[in-house]
Design a protein around this nucleic acid. Sequence first.
DNA 1: CAATAACATACTAAACTGATAGGAAAACAT
DNA 2: ATGTTTTCCTATCAGTTTAGTATGTTATTG
Lengths: 148, 148
Amino acid sequence: MKLSTRSTYGLRAMMAVAMDGSSGPVMVKEIAERHQLPANYLEQIMTPLRKGGLLAATRGAHGGYKLARAAQEITVREILETLEGSLELVECNEVACCGMQPDLCAVKDLLCEASRAMVEVLAQVTLADIVERQREKEAVSSALMYVI
Amino acid sequence: MKLSTRSTYGLRAMMAVAMDGSSGPVMVKEIAERHQLPANYLEQIMTPLRKGGLLAATRGAHGGYKLARAAQEITVREILETLEGSLELVECNEVACCGMQPDLCAVKDLLCEASRAMVEVLAQVTLADIVERQREKEAVSSALMYVI
DNA sequence: CAATAACATACTAAACTGATAGGAAAACAT
DNA sequence: ATGTTTTCCTATCAGTTTAGTATGTTATTG
């Protein structure tokens, strides 16, 4: 059930674009270097994010990626679903289940309920929220460093 | 993020043992036939359930599986974690994260929160609950069949 | 026109998934 | 005792996914 590196790298990349994007587009190379990720692989991950309408790219010299929408308008759920597909444990929308007789459906209902609880948490947090939380963490961390 | 067939088969098997186990141990062959599952494959799935302390087996003629504990004492969480490993999206217990600097940790915290919301739902439902819900569903279903 | 950076595609090793197959060991019946 | 039954154990396999490398193409800037 662990999230793939694809998803975690993609999430990191979205955060990086959101945090560093104020001074023009952010290059894949930058993100890769700063976060110690394989640049070519990261490029492949950017593609679905772009095609999914989360990132906008400009090519050529001084090009790079920026957010396609405001960070407040992008939820973590959206990012993960773009990279991972549905986050649900079973096909919750399917009417039929286990052929004709609804054998497993009590289980299926539960699994749907469980995954929806998870998705709900992810849907309520935007990229802007995450960036803010991260900045707070970093502020606290460097304050502690100073004390020590 | 879909659950593997391994887990759903295993869950079905646990339900089958719980429902049919009153009249002695339940054979893999029975479960496989009734639920249209590959018997050999299902056998492999029984092993971790037995070793995980959820099922008890008796070999030989008229052997089979029974629950190692009362159905009220077995949660769906336990069953799934036995089959699937941890259900969390990331290693929530790890202190370190992304090397020295806590880069992704705001994200990690969120992912932990989300997976815990899911696990919490699964932890609050026992095999006995599922069996009861299933019986209700089947009762309603056959009542409807009768009307039609 | 040259440099730059996204874009696209092909390839690969390793792991995982969902099985199938066959035999060994234990319990039971005759 | 012997044969049947059923769990138990191991090997094998085809297909898919994951994570990554490598390389070349296209668009933009200077």
